[in-house]
Simulated assay, not measured.
Amino acid sequence: MTVRAAWLTNRGDPAGGQTRNDSRLTPLGTMTPAGELTTLSGVIPGGAPFDLGITGPMGVTLGPGRAVVQGTDIQGAYPVTITAPEALIFTDGDATNPRLDVIVLRVYDGAYDESGQVLATAEIIPGTPAAAPTPPPLPAGALPLYRVAVPAGASAGGGGIDFRTATTDLRRPTVSVGGINPNPDAPGTYRAQYRDRSGLQRWSGSAWVGMATELITWTKAPLAAGYSHNGNSNGNVEYRVVELVGTRLVQWRGGMNVTYRSGAPARGGAFLTSALPTTARPTGLRSLAVACSAADSKTLALKIDFLSNGTATLVTDSSSTPPWVSFHGVMYSA
């Protein structure tokens, strides 16, 4: 038997003691909680758990892996393991309509269902053929792994199933309580829960809040004629967009050389050749101070306006025409 479940059968003292239901409901080995007594079903990450292999026109195998399968609320959660590739065969397609089948890990427990069995299996739950088929409803104690579209007329001698295009991966990871779930769509179930969605997020109790996500990496700003990079040897003018504790911030760095005409900055101070991407634009006007050269200037700082349309303007007057400004430390909320 290559599909196994812990805490499913009673063993040991025939006089009684801890029951299998007691064991499943206790905190030993608790994964992500979904409620007061329930656990978030899912695949335990590491390697390629339950990898799907194609063995023939209608056949596949499920590779080794580990998972947690939640039954009904009072039933508890079952740790399930496949220790060697498990073979599965799809039944032939309907003569007229396609259907959607789902490959699942399933726990049968006669103490809670009407199966009369006590075992864990890997099986295919077939859908109903239809012109526009929908996936079949899944019983309690079934963890979906893959959805497979079975075309009408599919059979071993009739072309079979093109598993490469017909298969949808439904595997979703689950982790120990306090762990960081790599599933970007993991539901929030308790405050201070973490998940990774191209950056760390924390569940506040009502919403996922970004911790430190880089939305746009450091990008060289497109400077217009009359402006150039590396002012005062400060490096290229660059920006990036990060999300920090739910707030989107745009950070700048580098130095910009400035050319003046009749005492005014070139192009009236508009120093970008194209607008910033939407993600880097502020929702309203952001006016910020930038350090500047003491040469040809009555002040050591000028003003830059970042506008909601993605443009930016250097603001000065004819009495202050410093040859460079520094963007180091410039940051605004988007």
Rank of each mutant, 00 (worst) to 15 (best):
L288W: 05
P79N: 11
R267P: 00
D305A: 08
R202E: 14
T30W: 14
K303F: 00
T30L: 15
L272D: 07
R202T: 12
S333M: 05
Y78T: 00
G329W: 03
L37A: 15
L105H: 09
A149S: 15
S287H: 01
V104H: 06
L119P: 01
T217Q: 14
G255L: 03
Q117A: 14
N230A: 01
M256D: 02
D51K: 09
I103W: 03
F90M: 11
K303W: 01
G178C: 12
L285T: 14
S308Y: 10
S297R: 02
K303A: 06
R248D: 13
Y112T: 14
A120I: 01
V150K: 00
L25F: 04
V148Q: 03
G29I: 10
L28R: 12
P144G: 08
S115W: 08
D185S: 06
T2N: 13
S176M: 05
A291C: 02
G179C: 07
T259V: 08
T189F: 11
I82N: 13
G65A: 06
R172G: 07
T311S: 15
A77S: 12
T279W: 03
E238V: 05
G268L: 09
E243D: 13
M331D: 12
T279V: 12
I216K: 13
V258C: 04
I54L: 03
V118F: 10
G59P: 05
P144R: 09
V325I: 14
T283A: 08
G268V: 10
T39S: 14
G46S: 06
T26H: 11
G268F: 08
G254Q: 10
G160E: 06
V150P: 02
E123W: 01
Y78G: 00
L40M: 13
S262Q: 14
A224C: 03
R106L: 00
D113R: 04
Y227N: 04
T30G: 13
P85F: 04
A140M: 05
G205V: 04
A95W: 03
I216L: 15
E114L: 10
I216N: 11
H229S: 05
P182G: 11
N257M: 06
R195A: 08
P282E: 10
L62P: 10
P98I: 08
T279S: 15
V43M: 07
R240T: 04
T219K: 09
T55E: 15
G231K: 03
T96K: 05
L28S: 11
A84F: 02
V242H: 12
P14C: 05
A48F: 01
T19H: 06
R261C: 01
G46V: 05
